[in-house]
């Protein structure tokens, strides 16, 4: 655990390097959310903004690692390949999760305090979890691609892959809708939405597990 903590700190120190940019961007977003809350319901927009802009930030640490060929050095220390990959996933997860919480607090807080709106917390939680799952989905595709092809090529591959997967899933769902219209209809979607919070948690665990196993297998056999 001590070593994993060290790996998390390693990436945190990289973040520290551009903390001014992060803090400045966050202040701008908070201002936008606060001002927007005066006229509109900014809860969902606020959380979306935070997650999309900051939730994928952890991927930039790969770039810093690549520039200094950090991985070679890390593996010359008493660290295993598994620990290095676990460190990266944990950092990506914790970063997006903390951003979700921050976005949630700021957006909900500004809506309730500034505009005095009554928030449907259950709906906000469900939507937040859906957004968080979308970010996890992007992370879980990006990380193995970066391990496989490196930062530059990997990010390009990872930009195309999610679209194909979503398209494929869409095709499957519409096919099912045509084949079994009594099952796959609006009430099915509503039922899915009702249990989406739990479904998202399960989906997150599955995606992270599968993605981790793919990345670990790539990294295990990689010549550095």
């Amino acid at each position: 655990m001590e070593k994993i903590r060290g790996l998390l700190l390693k990436d945190l120190f990289v973040f520290k390097n551009y903390r001014k940019n992060i803090i400045f961007s966050m202040i701008v977003f908070v201002m936008v959310i606060l001002l927007g809350s005066l006229s509109y319901d900014m809860v969902f927009t606020g959380i979306t903004l935070f997650l999309l802009v900051f939730g994928l930030n952890s991927l930039s640490t790969f770039s810093y690692d690549e520039n200094s060929e950090v991985d070679k050095y890390l593996l010359s220390l008493p660290l295993t390949r598994k620990e290095v990959v676990v460190g990266k996933y944990l950092f990506a997860f914790l970063n997006s999760f903390l951003i979700l919480i921050l976005g949630f607090i700021i957006s909900v807080g500004s809506s309730t305090i500034v505009s005095g709106r009554i928030i449907d917390i259950s709906k906000v939680l469900k939507n937040s979890m859906l957004l968080f799952t979308a970010v996890s989905y992007l992370l879980c595709i990006n990380i193995p691609c970066i391990y496989k092809w490196g930062m530059e090529k990997g990010r390009m591959q990872a930009a195309i892959l999610p679209v194909f997967i979503v398209f494929a899933l869409g095709v499957i769902y519409f096919t099912l809708m045509i084949l079994f219209p009594n099952i796959f209809n609006d009430s099915f979607l509503k039922m899915i939405y009702d249990i989406s919070f739990i479904l998202c948690i399960i989906l997150n665990i599955l995606m992270y597990y599968i993605s981790f196993m793919i990345s670990f297998n790539i990294y295990q056999n990689k010549d550095l």
Binding site: G6, L9, D65, N67
Partner: peptide, 27 residues
Amino acid sequence: IGVVLDDSFFSNVLKIDDINILMKHFY
């Protein structure tokens, strides 16, 4: 094992104190 690699080290944005903290965790 102590290792020096010509072309590889921690990220360039780290400071000496950061490296000390990391090494305390690793060794």
